[in-house]
Nucleic acid binder design. Structure first.
Lengths: 247, 247
DNA sequence: GTCAATTGTTGGTCAGACCAACGGCTAAAT
DNA sequence: ATTTAGCCGTTGGTCTGACCAACAATTGAC
């Protein structure tokens, strides 16, 4: 492993981090690979060992490496659970990032639902059907209901058979699950949400089964729009949304 | 700032990280706050300064603090830029399935073009217009043309005014730029690509200007589909695509 | 009051030492 | 010959103490 071509001009932490980042991004370092020991890496790069440690710790936070005591540092597939930390901090600091990410998830799911309509397998239909059943069974339980809603959406993304979309969706998973959970709290405020939750998810499922990407996309977008409406009205103190009973 | 209640039993990095995480999550530390100097924090916690540095560096990667040289460490509000690092690594691992990533980009861009149709500013229109001009001017230059194509798509994503979509798109940026570059090589095989490239991009632009999200989405999807058609025919040795000249 | 020099402060980095906990190797016992 | 016990090497985790760079603040001279 030729690892001595360091970043120009940099030293210490920056030198190590930049070089490892490049090796990871260009594929020289792959999941499962073990880095040379810290002392050796420090010697090769002409930096101090604490600088190496800082860089490795930083990469650990991104989930791309794992420092194993007395074994060494191992490259791993980026671990979406690390993003749980990020979202927890974002929530605690009331950062704008939360709504931005939740909005952007529409891109992932709406494209996924189109692909699902084209590619879903029997196993996918079964998983979606089970998720639908669970949504209905948990309609009065916000905790389990939130999870059931999230599971349905995750099943849609899985049915798309796109590894990239799955990774992106999983990276937002912690945030989306929380969002679904919060949405479910509104069921006690708006009785009409019960039929909304069951019927809308069913509509999405039916469009996937019908192999109709356009219809699936439209059904899912409508689902998001009405969900946002419920949220808006809860925030503004309005009672039942006017469109809830309509088509 | 009472910061000495450390995590039970832990020491070194773990002790510092855990304690700071708690302070950040419980609101004791807020954006704008400045932590005590590293030396003092190390003394208060009874750990070494490198341990403090590792913990601070870890929190830096999560975007919750910023280490400012000779000033100190300041708490900040997390923003989406941290996600960019994560996505870049996650997508780099997908590099073996480049087509999967290229396909998934449709999710990002098609949602972005919808939002662009709703949110684009005058400055966005100007940037898109310039990109269009550059596409036409570079029609016979694969290198510059690939970049011009990518710039148009990036401008669409920017016009969506969604940080998360921008970050996601940037994470794929290198792959997409290369894909556009490769596509431009096909111009020499298929003369009809010239009008395709100019007209299709113009159609997308017009739909954005018309503030018509549906039409923009449809135009961009058609653009991708025809682009894929060219690519397929090049791979299978066919000459001009039959639909190229039609509506 | 202004300017220059000095001092203090903070993060960035380094060198070297020690500790804990394994795994591997070697020598002794059976 | 085989098994067991002890020792050594290795690696990450942590610590101490020192030095450097680059400012800002303070002090003294004019």
């Amino acid at each position: 492993m030729d690892i001595t071509r360091a970043a120009e001009g940099a030293k210490g932490f920056e030198k190590v981090f930049t070089l490892l980042r490049e090796r990871l991004l260009d594929g020289s370092l792959k999941p499962g690979d073990r880095l040379v020991p810290e002392r050796e890496l420090a010697a090769q790069l002409g930096v101090s060992r604490p600088a190496v440690r800082e860089a490795l710790r930083a990469l650990t936070m991104l989930g791309v490496v794992e420092i194993i005591d007395r074994i060494g540092t191992v490259v791993r597939r980026p671990d979406v659970s690390m993003l749980g930390y990020f979202f927890a901090f974002a929530l605690a600091q009331q950062a704008d990032v939360i709504d931005d990410v939740i909005e952007a998830r529409i891109a992932i799911e709406c494209q996924a639902v189109r692909l699902a309509a084209e590619r879903a397998t029997i196993a996918d239909f079964e998983r979606l059907q089970q998720a639908l059943t669970r949504i209905a069974a948990t309609i009065d339980d916000p905790e389990a209901g939130g999870m059931a809603d999230f599971d349905f959406h995750a099943a849609v993304v899985q049915a798309a058979h796109s590894e990239t979309l799955s990774v992106l969706h999983a990276s937002m998973g912690a945030l989306l699950a929380r969002s679904h959970r919060t949405r479910r709290d509104l069921v006690q405020v708006f009785g009409s949400m019960k039929s909304y939750l069951i019927d809308d998810h069913r509509r999405v499922f039916d469009a996937i089964v019908a192999r109709d990407p356009e219809r699936a996309d439209i059904a899912l977008r409508r689902h998001f729009a009405i969900g946002d409406d419920y949220r808006r009205r809860a925030a503004t103190g309005q009672v039942e949304p006017q469109k809830a009973g309509g088509e």
